[in-house]
């Protein structure tokens, strides 16, 4: 604990404050409790249909591809169509997410669905987002027993399913939903905000897709079915 006390004492000394100052403590407690929302860009503050359209447009702008389907029942066929269009083997990796599991995967002939965390050999991963952010075309995923994080990063192609009604205008709406879902101040091990496929500009500032994470990000937006 010596490093801890030394650093905290140096910080207090430098700030000229004393340990146990009640007004400072209450200022901090208030901010942590209230989590005030700051400046929220007007860009995403749109009625639902425009908001979904903005989400799709922003995702395309960051080199994701986007498909829209009429209900969760259509997702497996949309996945199969994507695999065919990219000449990929008919095999996907996904977690045990109940929204994904409720979809009719067996109805797609010859599509192999592997369950569990991804490994080096997996070419395509499928995840279900908890939210989308229209402002930037971002999808939000979280880890958990049914949602392996490796699926988001190891495969070359990452397919993310997002419900249209869960596309928010801005980040703040998503933070507040996460807080509501997991409890104030509590987080799942990992929350991933993903905006387009992996990229790097490290060689001569030339932007290239597919650095270490997925080379392609394919979003399937599910309208209320």
């Amino acid at each position: 604990m010596s490093g801890r006390e030394a650093i905290l004492n140096k910080v207090r000394g430098a700030l000229g404050v004393s340990f146990g100052d009640a007004s400072r403590a209450s200022a901090v407690a208030r901010r942590l409790d209230d989590a005030p929302v700051g400046v929220v860009p007007a860009r995403g503050q749109l009625p639902e249909s425009d908001r979904i359209a903005l989400f799709c447009a922003m995702a395309l702008k960051v080199s994701a591809s986007v498909d829209r389907v009429k209900g969760p029942g259509e997702v497996p066929e949309a996945v199969a169509a994507y695999l065919r269009s990219k000449n990929l083997p008919a095999s996907v990796r996904m977690g045990a997410d109940e929204r994904l599991q409720a979809m009719p995967w067996k109805a797609v002939p010859a599509l192999e669905v592997k369950s569990g965390p991804a490994g080096a050999e997996d070419e395509v991963g499928v995840s279900h987002a908890i939210a989308g952010v229209a402002e930037t075309g971002t999808v939000v995923l979280h880890s958990g027993a049914a949602n392996p994080t490796t699926v988001n990063f190891l495969p070359e192609h990452h397919i993310v399913v997002v419900d249209a009604k869960e596309i928010a205008g801005d980040l703040e709406t998503v933070f507040s939903r996460i807080r509501h879902r997991f409890g104030k101040g509590t987080m799942p091990r990992t929350v991933n905000l993903i905006t387009g496929p992996s990229r790097s500009g490290d060689i001569e500032q030339k932007l290239l897709l597919g650095a270490h994470g997925p080379r392609a990000l394919h979003l399937i937006v599910v309208d209320a079915g």
Binding site: M58, V62, E135, T136, T138, M187, T190, V191, N192, L193, I194, T195, G196, P197, S198, R199, G213
Partner: peptide, 9 residues
């Protein structure tokens, strides 16, 4: 960029 590709919490 409006947002970097991966923001991981």
């Amino acid at each position: 960029q409006d947002m970097s590709v991966y923001t991981t919490v």
